[in-house]
């Protein structure tokens, strides 16, 4: 084993990849949360069409592999566009990847947020009703702050999942941590050192996030 190939420069190269992985996960969890909030609102609404749209979205995303979604977005979407508009286009892999992962995360987050809201006791809704609060006031002042406590832990694990799943973008040429590691491996004809170090970086990142989330949960639990 030639761990000596992990020089400072190589390590920095891997760290740069890790930075991109983290960036992909942060942006995706951000848009995923927005999509998830909209999705949950659509699922909980009384409008049948919105219910249907949200259900189709969630089921299609959860019922197909993420790898397929990413590949579809990168290879099939440009082909579809050129069929329709007769112009050939090429997608930026990073942006396409982030869009695909955000859409994927949005479907899972829809379910997280929906069950977080449903987890708030019915009595809280009813008390807000009898006091004359409007739907919006009830949701923003009473229900969502309580739902947030239910949603936070699974949302953090969704974030951790996204950091790991961002490695799938290596298949469409995004040089994130996974791709950086295999590139280093290929250059030196030695895969064990870069893959081991890269795995270590993933692990450390996720351990730090889990730890921070536990701290935050404890602070939020103060009113319990």
């Amino acid at each position: 084993m030639k761990f000596s190939i992990i020089t400072w420069d190589v390590f920095l190269y891997l760290l740069k990849g890790a930075g991109l992985s983290l960036l992909i996960a942060v942006i995706s969890v951000f848009f995923g949360t927005i999509l998830g909030t909209l999705g949950a609102a659509a699922k909980l609404s009384k409008n049948k069409i919105l219910n249907l749209l949200a259900n189709v979205y969630v089921e299609v995303i959860r019922g197909t592999p993420m790898m397929m979604q990413i590949t579809f977005a990168y290879l099939a979407m440009p082909a579809i566009i050129s069929l329709i508009f007769g112009k050939s286009v090429r997608f930026n892999p990073l942006i396409t990847g982030i869009v695909a992962i955000s859409l994927n995360s949005g479907a899972y987050t829809t379910e997280l947020i929906r069950s977080g809201i449903n987890g708030v006791d019915r009595g809280q809704f009813e008390a807000a009703d009898t006091l004359g609060l409007t739907y919006r006031q009830k949701m923003t002042m009473v229900i969502l702050p309580q739902a947030f406590k239910n949603i936070l832990p699974p949302l953090v694990s969704e974030f951790v999942t996204l950091i790991k799943d961002s490695s799938l973008l290596s298949t469409i040429g995004v040089v994130e941590l996974m791709k950086s590691a295999t590139t280093v491996g290929a250059n030196f004809y030695a895969y064990i050192p870069p893959l081991t170090v890269a795995s270590g970086i993933y692990l450390v990142l996720n351990l730090i996030i889990s730890y921070a989330s536990k701290k935050l949960e404890k602070r939020l639990a103060l009113s319990d």
């Binding site: 006791d121 009595g123 809280q124 009813e126 008390a127 807000a128 009898t130 009473v142 702050p145 309580q146 009113s223 319990d224």
Partner: peptide
């Protein structure tokens, strides 16, 4: 109308 519930339903947050 004021309503008082069996399980109080004070806002926990």
């Amino acid at each position: 109308m004021g309503f008082v519930f069996q399980h109080f339903n004070l806002f926990n947050n």
